[in-house]
Design a binder for these strands. Sequence first.
DNA 1: ATTAGCACTCAAACCGAGCGAGTGCCAAAT
DNA 2: ATTTGGCACTCGCTCGGTTTGAGTGCTAAT
Lengths: 340, 340
Amino acid sequence: MVSDRSLEVLRVIVQDYVASREPVGSKSIVDRHSFGVSAATIRNDMALLEEEELITAPHTSSGRIPTDKGYRMFVDHLADLKPLTIAQRQAIETFLGESADLDDVLSRTVRLLSQLTHQVAMVQYPSLSQARLRHIELVSLSPTKLLSVMIADTGHVDQRVLEVPAEVDVEFLGELRAKLNTALVGAGVLEAAGRMAGLAALFGEGRRPVVNAIALALAEQVAANRQDRLVIAGASNLVRTEEDFHGSILPVLEAVEEQVVLLRLFSELEADQRGVSASIGRENAPFGLAETSILASGYLAQGGAVAHLGVLGPTRMDYSSNMAAVRAVARYLSRSLGDG
Amino acid sequence: MVSDRSLEVLRVIVQDYVASREPVGSKSIVDRHSFGVSAATIRNDMALLEEEELITAPHTSSGRIPTDKGYRMFVDHLADLKPLTIAQRQAIETFLGESADLDDVLSRTVRLLSQLTHQVAMVQYPSLSQARLRHIELVSLSPTKLLSVMIADTGHVDQRVLEVPAEVDVEFLGELRAKLNTALVGAGVLEAAGRMAGLAALFGEGRRPVVNAIALALAEQVAANRQDRLVIAGASNLVRTEEDFHGSILPVLEAVEEQVVLLRLFSELEADQRGVSASIGRENAPFGLAETSILASGYLAQGGAVAHLGVLGPTRMDYSSNMAAVRAVARYLSRSLGDG
DNA sequence: ATTAGCACTCAAACCGAGCGAGTGCCAAAT
DNA sequence: ATTTGGCACTCGCTCGGTTTGAGTGCTAAT
């Protein structure tokens, strides 16, 4: 059975190893921390921890490093979130102080988070599945090309070029715009796609093929928009922590560029009671990220939409500080975006 | 004086070194290429090239590698652009085949370019300085918040949230929208900013403060938009070529994330007669990119706007192939975006 | 101008000894 | 039953020395 002191030993092993990047031995533990026992005792505890696979020795006779299981134990039971420094709180204030465009807020947020944690930071766009259409705008680019702009109550704006099978004159465009808006505004994105279908019935016989073409394109635009997007910053922090990756950081950087893997990870994470969730090391192996950890938290955007934000870095990271930063930024973002 | 054969020697040194990543010696040259002379003769030529600082020896007695000056000579006088393979041409077709949104086209293009060259690829958004406003849309988000959407004839769409000092009801919004559009549509972005100022005169006395506030915000939006943006892909290729950077790739990745340095570089490059410009190694030292080269080309977007696109990678890169790829993609993009 | 020959250089690979942080275990002490 | 001091042992690092080999520079002959 792992005693209380053993767990304390695990805690300092994690802390010291994260700080020094070197395997930590029994001697250095009694030196740096006041356990009130001798090195030999610590060694016994370490043998216990090794039994439980919470720590491991890189070579037969060297200090110990935490296993993934050890990190997991640490974040679940041992880590207390380090409160942010004054400077960090100020950074949050000044960075996110002035409100603006959604794009703008999210890109500021992600840069802030990467600076606070020195890791790769990611912010997910608020999901559109709960969003409602606020406005649809159609602009003529050429006789057979339209630009459609959809505005959602979450602040999302999405535009797309539509190719239409026949000319669209100004009056027709006005009619389209008006009927589209009366039919669709206020609808959730799912309903909107459904209502598109019945749209042609509102127009004269001759218009129907064109209207149907447009409705189809708009429905597609709505659908394409449901898929989520990420904003990412701080990829350079990966090379800064390169030594922490046993292999190469190439697959990690590739995953970051792809985004799709990260989105899946986000969707599978569940927050613990502190509001921050962690996925550690080999837990991410199915995604090809066996040496990285992800810390994430949810945040509330306009319209009650919920989305995630978080950081990604080497398994050997400062969980206490980073989890605190993620939580703080998520809270602040919810406050500055949310409906309240 | 550097003879013709010496230049041939330089060419094969560049080619072999780029291919093998190892200093190339006189022996291996006569082995791999049929110069019809002995190794000793090659050595004499190499001594000449070294005199001219076109090549250099990493250690006293090892093969030679090209200097930056040598690479410059190579791209200016020695390199013939390797025609793309069939597969590559097909990749361009399938990748850029279907037209769509400007955002979409550019992001496809940049991914394509990074795949073709295995380098970091960059595409600049078409400059707005030549763009004309096609439409301005105002949407009410809350009584004192407006979303403004500006659409330019280049396909640009830019949105921003405006905070207004007083409530704006539906009719007023309609009036604003109408007068803004009649006043501004067709104007270039520079003129538009100017015309904003006189806008308040069109409204009743009571409205003027609000109108002025909005005009100010819009003018700012126009101005902010003048600054150019880049789309970037393939940053992971930097770590793939990491060994080619003597120091760390950290500053390079940071510059890529910053974008601002890259924009300045783009603006200073001038195309040669082949339409592709190169900035090599220490030529980029003022930007902190002394070990990287940039290949760029201009492309034509809608409205006659011109913008740049290119790749960035280690000085030791395959200039022949990469310049060909940059040129091909630039041409294709011009064709698919241009007014013709 | 080119070439063969030859002495010389120097990075990289290889080797083995010695160091030292750290372990595991055991017998004694609390 | 837990803790502790002691001690032999392990094994990755570092450091000096040797070897190897690709490649050069020079010189004298063609």
